[in-house]
Design a protein around this nucleic acid. Structure first.
Length: 165
DNA sequence: AAGCATTGGTGCCCTAGATC
DNA sequence: GATCTAGGGCACCAATGCTT
């Protein structure tokens, strides 16, 4: 049973500190655990692919996160430098495909068409840093037509990790 | 039942800030 | 600059729960 507030008032600062320590330490462990849990959720599919049916320890989660980041870095380096605009366009295109895929499965066709038409409008340009030559940059990639986007969505596997974003 | 992982409590050490 | 103090982080250990 926890000491009453009156009893706590009577304690010396050192004793108060001694009582507070376990609480603070617990909060700290909780932070560690919740972050590990978030890592686990973020890497869940990767775990399923590499170690199906195996129980995940915290150490496993951390190891997998490290190897994922290493892999991700190596992939980005191999892909070479991209312009900000190119990077943005690829990201936009990918998000569009994801949205189309989702709508294909879940949304009513009317809503789907309206949303697709909305996405067909040119995306806002990314906030370019001062050095990036705005006008001289490469033209944005062609936008997907609704039919093409749906076809692309049909080809796309469900969200997998190791995606070069 | 044994082995392993996780959790919770505690002591020790380190560091930053305050005071002299 | 030396000393003191509070706060934070880490390591260790015991208890508990889970798996084989």
């Amino acid at each position: 049973m926890a000491p009453s507030t009156v009893a706590v008032e009577l304690l010396s600062p050192k004793e108060k500190n001694r009582l507070r320590k376990p609480v603070v330490e617990k909060m700290r462990r909780d932070r560690i655990n919740s972050s590990i849990e978030q890592l686990k959720l973020l890497l869940e599919q990767e775990f399923a692919r590499h170690q199906p049916n195996s129980k995940l320890e915290k150490a496993d989660i951390l190891e997998m996160a490290v190897s994922y980041l290493k892999h991700s870095k190596a992939f980005a380096a191999a892909a070479g430098p991209k312009s900000l605009h190119q990077d943005y366009s690829e990201g936009y295109s990918w998000c569009l495909q994801e949205a189309v895929q989702f709508l294909t499965l879940h949304a009513a066709s009317d809503t789907q068409m309206k949303l697709l038409c909305h996405f067909q409008r040119p995306p806002a340009a990314p906030a370019a840093p001062a050095k990036e030559p705005k006008a001289a940059g490469p033209a944005p990639p062609p936008l997907l037509t609704p039919a093409k986007a749906t076809a692309v969505a049909a080809r796309q596997p469900t969200c997998g990790l190791w995606r070069p974003w």
